[in-house]
Amino acid sequence: MSSSVLTARNLSKHYGTGDARFDALRGIDLDIREGESVAIVGKSGSGKSTLMHILALLDSPSSGELEIVGQNAKALKGRALNTLRNATFGFVFQQFFLNSHATVLENVILPLKIARLGSRERKAKALETLALVELTEKASSKAMDLSGGQKQRVVIARALVGDPRIIFADEPTGNLDSATGAVIENLLFSLNRDRGITLVIVTHDDDLAARADRRIYLKDGRLVGEGDLKSQASPATTPNGATLA
């Protein structure tokens, strides 16, 4: 919990010019430490998704500095950028982005395929990861035949299979009912706690945000407040928070 995996200094992002100029982010300073769980909270249009995209190197800032695991984001290009994305990040999206015609196993294997792992090795690893999210028996089902909660577990398995250091989750429970959502929450926080994976969650759900070690509030592209575990009561860090329903 000491070294910084993500450091942002005065990050700004704007779209368009002149009258049409829209500032999505205005001077964000941020440090996220290894193994931390951070919730980026804000309403629609607050810039929280833009911030996550920039932190995850999916988008580039208009100005400001960003360091990821000790590397300057601007200097990362081509192969180095792709390797970093593949090996360091895992993504969980609200809309699952699963290939619905492919099997669950094939969906989970995709990042390993991109990483050029051998077919036997990647299958073993994907099955291992599927066991972790308790979907072993669904490995050969088509993704479209799964329920919402099962799909999100597949997405988590896909994010997890490459042993990432950081998982970015964009409204991970947004499309799920509260019971299923709780299962997904528990799964994500247990990965954070048991495996030391840094978790960055973007949400407007206060209950979900409350379970994170730290909350960052965004409004109109600015940081308007931070809260961490010590200063605020957290309802969701029970010892058995990791159990899967």
């Binding site: 792709n82 994305r85 593949n86 290939n99 995709l110 990042p111 991109i114």
Partner: peptide, 16 residues
């Protein structure tokens, strides 16, 4: 489109 975006986010190069 989404699948391509996802693969790129996962580190697949444009050439591939």
């Amino acid at each position: 489109t989404r699948e391509i975006g996802l693969m790129k986010a996962m580190g697949m190069s444009g050439a591939r």
